[in-house]
Each structure stands twice: as C-alpha cells, then as structure tokens.
Design a binder for these strands. Structure first.
Length: 561
RNA sequence: GCGCCCAUAGCUCAACCGGAUAGAGCAACGGCCUUCUAAGCCGUAGGUUGCAGGUUCAAGUCCUGCUGGGCGUGCCA
C-alpha cells in the first residue's frame, strides 16, 4: 500500500517537473507515513511541504497540483489536502480488506522481505567469559541480540550469531584457583582463599564434578575431570568447559543458539595478535612510554592514547579485541553488530580507532554497536541483588525458572536498549491483564478458540468463500484491525533497519488491543456463512501476524491459555 | 574534571531518517459475563515532553548551555 502510494506520487512529481511547476534538479525522498489519526485517512505524505521551498511555491498549491497529477488507482478511494500541506490518502475498503488475503497467502513469511539481499551480517552478543552462570545483563543482551538476528533474517540477511570469550586470561586463572581452593576444602572465609577468588556456590559444584572425574560437554568443547587437585591446568580446562556448559544450558532454556564460539586464545595461537601488533608498530602509530607500548588512538578520535602492551610484556585485552575485529572483517562481514553492556562503551571508540590505525580499508565507524543499559531486578518493590548460586548477582536462570522463558524474553527485549530497565518479577509473573506477554498471547489463544468452536459446530473455515466476501468486513473495529495488520511489514522493516526489536513488542501490544476490541464488538460465529467466514479469515490473519511477530522476539504463541 | 547514555501522565514505558490534537498499560473512578475464553471490553480523569535559549513552515525528536541520574574514565574484560 505504502509502496503503491509512493509510486503514484513519483509519477505525479515527474509530471509536475515536465510541466515546469517544479525544478528538474530536485529529487526529494518521497515519504509516505501511516497516519496516527483516522481523520487524516490511512496514509499521508509531506511531499508538498518538502517541495515548497526549492520550488518557491505555496505548499497547499503544490499539494493541489500533485493531487491533480496523480494517476488513477483502484487502491485509493479519496485524497484530501489538509493542514499546512499534507496530502491524505484514504484506501479503498476493498483494497484494505485484501490485506487479509495477502496475510493468509503469505503465512509465516508475511512481513518478511528480501531487502538484505543475502548480505552476510555477523552479530556478536552475550560473549560472557566462562567464569560463572549468566546474569540478567547477559539475558538482556541475549534477548536483544537474538531478536536483532531474527529481524535481520526476516529482512533477507545471512546472519551469523557469534559468541566471543576469553578462556586463558587473568580471570580464568582466578577461576581455576578458586575451583582448586574448593577442591582442597577451602572456604572463602579461610585465610588461604585466593585473593579476589570467585565465591559463589557454583564453584563448589565445579570442584566436586572435577574430583569425581565427570565428563562435561559444552557446545564447543568436551573435557573430563582429572581428579587431581594439584593440577591447575587440568582444573582450568575443566572449569572452563563446565561453565561453558552451564551457560549453554542457560541459553538453551532461553531459546538462543550460536553458530560460532570464538576463543580469544585462538588469536594468540594463530599469530593474529602478534601480526596485529606488528602492523600497528610498522604503521608508525605506536610509541614506548613508562615501559609500555602505546597506540596513538587519539589520532583516530579517542580522547586518550591506550596501552597495547603492558610493561610486563603481556598484551592488554585491547589488542586481541582489534585482532578479533580484523578477523571478522577478513571473514567478509561488511556488516557487524556488537551487542554488549553499556558498561563497556569505552571499547567502542577504542576498537574503531585501532581498526583505523591498521589502515586496511575498514570504513570509519565500523562495526556497529548496540549497547544496553543496566538491568535492575525488583521483587515486591525491593531490589534483588543476590542469587544464592552466583553469590553476587541475579542469574538469568533464576529469572527463567521463576517467571518463564516467554515473559523473560519479552520483558528484556521490549524496552529500548539504551534506557535502564527495571525487571519487576511480580509483574512478569502475574497472569493478569497488567502483563503484556499474556495480553498478546491471549489474543492468539482467543482466535484459536473461535476456530475450535467453528470446527466443533461443523462450520469449518471455508477459505474460498471467505476470500469472496472480505468486503463484508466493514465495522470500524474490523477496519481498524485490518489497518493495523497492514502496517506489520513496515514495523519489521523499521525494527530491523534500526536494530530496535522493541518496536515489534510495541506493535504486538497494539495489535492485540485492536483484536480484543474487535472481538468484544463483533461476533464471529454468525448465521450468514459468507460474513462468518470473512470474519474467521480476519481472525486467522490476526493470529498469523501475532505468531510471526512473537517469533521475532523468541516468544511462543500458545493455542490456549 | 572529562567522555558516553538517559530524563515524556502518580508508576512502567512508546512515539517510524523532524510532521497534524504526544500514545499504551498499571494505579484511581464508573459501567459490561444466561451470548465465540472477563487473562477481556467500554467510559472518565490524568501532560508547559527536566529547565533556558536556538534552528525550522513544523521540535519530545536537531543544536547550545544548565539541572538531575546511570556508566565509563586501569598497564581489568
């Protein structure tokens, strides 16, 4: 619909250019928007106002000229010029009802498009180090990151989900020492407990499993415990595998799967870290000071230079970060999106600066970032800070166990990433109308219920009959619902383009609201078979769109509640 | 101190490269179940979009300066 109107306006604009009403050399992007207010028709454009200045004409006169030059179209019932120069379009009722046929025809693929043209996109998210169970912040990253992936897939991209982690650094050594301490029966209160050791109860489980010689299988590794409490290397390998498996189970429970697990250590093994360092040094972008090697990132927009090799000869995390992103680029990802917590935002400028310093033709501003702000968890209005298992934070698993996967995913993805999120456990748990997840799922279940009823009464949905009588969908509530349905593809396109899944959540809530309103106002199971089937078709179309939208958020669409 | 992010109804939030009268839900108040799931619907009330300027035909949206909050500002990741 939007495309149709855009095309019509394009023709009209060309006509005006030929008539000399509008200068040839201006070429505005024609913007057609769905209206907020029904009184303004179904779609509107501000084209006349955009043209007013360059054409040196009054916007309302231009609007008149544009309307006069508009080709005939069966899709448009009426146009009108309003306000300072908007052109409003009223869709023909028959054309509007055809959305129902289009949705049923397209099914699961309704709302999807091919604008991505198969372009390879890599999304890196979660990327938690294997030092403990995933926490709520990782959960937010997982919900947003995976939803972005689903949106990109829905818009025709070839998506790779990647998880990057460090299995060899100082934190991992710390983990190994903590497990070893537990294996030797130490307690965080004991004097010999490692400094800054991990204190959570889960460390006890790792130690027990190691001593028992168990074998753990994670998505990217399999390790058997050696049972020797003095073999720190064996403990390290085992602990990493154990916690990787733990995280995999968390992710699986959350409905998130990765294509690639990328190890920071592999960058050292493959010589990529050294090669990156050499390239930066050879390029003349480094200098020695205070016994360390610095990269002059200030030449590339950073506010201070950064240490890349410490005075003890080890590299900082910064250098492998650059090497890792160079590797992404060399793997052919022209588009890379990094979803991470905003507490790491300082790496954005740094990594980009490092990549520029490599002078390999990587565009300025690559890669893209989506940063999410902190999550605060509350219960009974009080902040929840601790989980028994992890010791110092609320785990993702706690939330999934307590409020369920659907509600957890919905709540973590339904808010803009860059605003702080309060996760209200009581609200997410409540099976009532204050919980948007249930509100949306209930709409889906209600359609299913009507369909069951039709079936039970021997009045199965008759597709052909329905398609012939869609024009009988004429009540205000039905029209509003169809209008909402027709906007779904734009919502998907916009959410995918902007990497903002919350638009889908918002839309689904509005769609559910329109449906419930319609459901209460318009009885489906009426005597007249043609009207009944047309309404069943509208219900089916609504169900389809809710299902498609929930899928983009990784939330299920139950048939009954 | 400096950098990034945020500030919208009592509360939690939305608002599509700037567009018409800023929208939902909760909480409050008043209605609707002998009728397809009341986990629902209808109605009422609630706003100087933190403050002050600026750009524009048009600003919650862009720019500048304030105020308040979060995060960062390690040779940690």
């Amino acid at each position: 619909m939007k495309e149709t109107i855009t095309a019509l306006l394009g023709d009209a604009l060309n006509t005006l250019k030929q008539q000399g009403e509008v200068p040839d050399d201006i070429d505005p992007t024609i913007k057609v928007e769905a209206t907020r207010d029904k009184a303004h028709g179904d779609y509107a454009t501000n084209l006349a106002m955009m043209l007013a200045k360059p054409a040196g004409k009054n916007p309302r006169d231009l609007a008149n000229a544009l309307v006069a030059a508009l080709p005939e179209s069966a899709a448009i019932r009426q146009t009108e010029i309003a306000g300072p120069g908007f052109i409003n379009f009223f869709a023909a009722t028959d054309a509007m009802a055809q959305i129902v046929a289009r949705i049923l025809d397209a099914g699961d693929s309704f709302g999807r498009n091919l604008t991505g043209a198969g372009e390879k996109v890599q999304v890196e998210f979660v990327s938690a180090n294997p030092t403990g169970p995933l926490h709520v912040g990782h959960g937010r990253g997982a919900a947003i990151g995976d939803s972005i992936c689903r949106l990109l897939e829905a818009t025709g991209h070839d998506v790779t989900r990647e998880f990057y982690y460090n299995d060899a650094g100082a934190q991992i050594t710390n983990l190994a020492r903590s497990v070893q301490a537990r294996a030797k029966g130490l307690d965080p209160e004991d004097d010999d407990w490692p400094e800054d050791g991990y204190r959570g109860d889960y460390i006890i489980d790792v130690a027990k499993s190691y001593l028992a010689g168990e074998t753990v299988h994670a998505d990217d590794r399999h390790v058997t415990g050696k049972t020797d409490p003095d073999d720190i290397d064996a403990i390290r390998d085992f602990a990493v595998a154990y916690l990787r498996r733990e995280q995999d189970l968390d992710l699986k429970a959350f409905g998130v799967e990765f294509d690639v697990y990328f190890l920071e250590s592999s960058l050292y093994e493959d010589g990529n870290v050294e090669a990156t360092a050499k390239r930066l040094i050879d390029g003349g972008h480094t200098y020695e000071a205070d016994g360390a090697l610095w990269l002059r990132t200030t030449d590339f927009g950073d506010d201070k230079d950064r240490v890349m090799r410490k005075s003890d000869g080890e590299y900082t995390y910064f250098l492998p970060d650059v090497a890792y992103h160079l590797d992404k680029w060399q793997r052919g990802f022209k588009q890379v999106i990094n979803e991470q917590g905003a507490d790491h935002h300082s790496t954005v400028t740094r990594v980009r600066a490092g990549l520029q310093a490599l002078e390999t033709g990587i565009p300025d501003g690559w890669p893209d970032y989506v940063l999410h702000q902190m999550v605060l968890v509350t219960r009974s209005g009080v902040e929840v800070k601790l989980s028994k298992r992890a010791g110092s934070y609320v785990t993702l698993r706690d939330l999934i166990d307590e409020v369920g996967r659907d509600a957890t995913r919905y709540f973590l993805a339904a808010r803009r990433a860059d605003s702080q999120l309060t996760f209200d456990i009581d609200l997410a748990r409540s099976q009532s109308n204050d919980n948007p997840v249930y509100y949306i799922q209930y709409a889906h279940a209600r359609v299913c219920s009507v369909l069951r009823k039709a079936e039970n009464e021997g009045q199965r949905f008759d597709h052909d009959l329905a398609m012939d009588h869609l024009s009988q969908l004429t009540t205000d509530q039905e029209k509003a619902l169809m209008n909402r349905l027709s906007r779904y593809p734009e919502v998907v396109a916009h959410a995918a383009r902007s990497h903002e899944p919350q638009h889908v959540a918002q839309y689904l809530q509005e769609l559910a609201s329109d449906f419930h309103t319609c459901y209460n106002a318009v009885k489906v199971m009426v005597e007249d078979p043609s009207l009944r089937n047309a309404r069943l078709a509208l219900g089916l179309a609504t169900r389809q769109v809710i299902r498609n939208g929930l899928d983009l958020l990784g939330v299920s669409a139950p048939e009954e509640m």
